[in-house]
Design a protein around this nucleic acid. Structure first.
Lengths: 241, 241
DNA sequence: CGCCAGATTGAGGAATATCAAACAGAGTGG
DNA sequence: CCACTCTGTTTGATATTCCTCAATCTGGCG
């Protein structure tokens, strides 16, 4: 079920975008670190909140959700990860993972030993700088989320999210979309039903199309308009088609 | 109005908590960087969103809000900073500031030149590690905010916030509280009026007391209980006093 | 005292949640 | 191929939370 082998970083297709970008081939061969290449089906857990952090990961393909489960059982999704994103790096400075990580789709990852990684980042400033950069990106994204959650209404949040999701697959008309309505709600701070209502309405209006885990945005301008809407700015003119 | 002089990092009262902690005195004297010591009244702007980033700051005393202003004029506060917090460090890797920064109270800050800081952090791994750590803290805080905004109701958000604010002044019964109802709303994703209603109610119930820019939490257990409440967990028993 | 920004209060309405029921579609076993 | 089941989606009705707008109140201050 879990395919696992040693990774060949030197010839990795993602090398130029990874935290090891910028290293010389000689340095790469001398990482002093085992990098496991892992393939997982959908729904597999990478780690759990509170668990001792042993590994960090680079997501090479597929999708992963990072989330917390509250005392009433409600899930809150903190981040949704795509091709190229990192996870588990909080383990560099904290002993335990801060959240749960589960694959949403069949995924390929590189698994890095955190102790090795920490030693490595002390030795190679390039690597540390790369990690710092990723962290800043994550913080910027989180702050954008705060703006969405704090200031926008349900439709605007959902529209923003769908557009950003689709943007991660620039070359595809119809993009992979393994999220349930419940996932969407957990990410956007909305109830499952409310998400469903909005999605259903947009499908009726042909703003978008869904089929077998794929999503196609048919009327991007309309979604963009909705994504911008702020409280007190009701769009009087609906689409007329 | 703006008192400004060269800072003496070696004898700074915050040295042990700053990003320069762990440096030897000799290294400190050789920072190769001018550190300005700045004192500002309340309501002073440190920088504006989109402005070229020249400086980063360490807040030595007082309070600062980082916020964005949306197209409808609405403010969203991203972070509220206290004694010991950093700001403007996004300028290390981005050319422009991502948000506005304004003092909420009379504040003392250290101003660091970003170009020098960048060079410095390449040279001194200790400094870079310290910055990395602050970044991770900021990300953790942002993720906690996302949980608050995404999953909790107004009262729980406000209670959580007040408790955390008060915790920043562990030795004081009555803590400085320079926030307006509007600030609270902008931070918590609520309307000014809704915040006001809840605060007024809590004052009536003697959960807390407000006076001349200061706040005292009188019944911490009740606030803690409210802070934990999640949708679907109505507390039937109110306080009886 | 008069003024003014911020705080409070009230009434009504919009946005969203909750609860319950019906629906759809992808396996699965006969 | 069909009935069956299971899970996720959609829909409806109702309740709650929160916002908006407008008015009033309060405390500090010239």
């Amino acid at each position: 079920m879990t395919d696992q082998r040693l990774s060949d970083c030197l010839h990795c297709s993602m090398r130029s975008e990874s935290i090891f970008a910028g290293l010389l081939p000689a340095e790469l061969e001398n990482l002093g670190m085992e990098v496991q290449d892992i393939a997982l089906p959908a729904g597999e857990r990478l780690y759990r909140e509170g668990e001792p952090a042993r590994y960090a990961y680079t997501l090479r393909s597929g999708a992963v959700k990072l989330y917390k489960t509250l005392s009433n059982g409600q899930e809150v999704i903190l981040r949704l990860l795509h091709h190229g994103d990192l996870l588990g790096f909080e383990g560099i400075s904290e002993k335990q993972h801060r959240n749960d990580a589960i694959t949403l789709a069949p995924s390929q990852l590189c698994r890095l030993d955190l102790e090795n990684l920490q030693a490595l980042s002390q030795r190679l400033p390039t690597v540390q700088a790369a990690i710092l950069q990723r962290w800043q990106d994550a913080l910027r994204e989180s702050e954008e989320r705060i703006v969405e959650l704090g200031a926008k209404r349900a439709e605007a949040r959902l529209a923003t999210f769908l557009l950003q999701w689709a943007q991660r697959y620039p070359h595809l008309r119809s993009v992979p979309f393994p999220l349930t309505r419940q996932d969407l709600g957990a990410f956007l701070g909305l109830s499952t039903e409310h998400v469903s209502r909005i999605m259903a309405e947009w499908k009726r209006q042909s703003f978008l199309h869904e089929s077998r885990g794929h999503l196609e945005i048919l009327q991007e301008p309309n979604l963009r308009r909705i994504a911008q809407e702020l409280p007190g700015e009701k769009a009087d003119k609906k689409n007329q088609d």
